[in-house]
Amino acid sequence: MSFEIRIARQFGERTIAAEFASKGGLTALFGPSGAGKTSVLNMVAGLLRPDTGLIAVRGTVLFDASARIDVPARQRRAGYVFQDGRLFPHMRVRDNLVYGWKLAAPVDRWMDLDEAIHFLGIGHLLDRWPRTLSGGEAQRVAIGRALLSAPRFLLMDEPLASLDRARREDIMEVIERLRDELKLPILYVSHDRDEVERLATTIVPIG
């Protein structure tokens, strides 16, 4: 199983819960805005602690409430691509890209800077500051930064949301190549039916 997830967390009056297991490819969490999809992603990343349940990815338990296992976010090796990119504004593109790469153990790295640049076509952006990038460029760099951090899986939170139609098509093709060429399990959040039907191997309705 790529993802084996059974989690719940109380937010005031409401409960956000998810239960699914999926094999490889791209698993899309699909549902309306505000259904708690991002919270599920944050729990898998280790940024938010579930009240109960279990999170295992590629056979490794990252969280198990009953066994009191809670691997810290920095050790989960999740490549998280955020909706808003979240590039570090005080670092040039190059330093953003290698931030996680430098922190990863050399044996865990499976991609180097040149490969990432080639894969994403971002060689001309290396010396730019994040604030000068277009939405599509920033999202490519964010994907590159995640890939270079030696991740065991990817988390993508509506990576197309802030892009225009042409850029969406562009990034969509990148995501298809991530899914098919790199064979990296991807947990993907979206509220767009077309997007999910095109990209997803498994669809998990949320909310």
Binding site: R74, R86, H90
Partner: peptide, 27 residues
């Protein structure tokens, strides 16, 4: 300082001390 940038650094493998030194303090 945007806390979400600190979260992003955590998911990239940075410890609390490193997040402070490379993200929070420079910003």
């Amino acid at each position: 300082v945007d806390r979400r940038l600190e979260e992003a650094a955590q998911t990239l493998g940075a410890s609390r001390v490193r997040v402070f030194a490379t993200i929070t303090l420079p910003l």
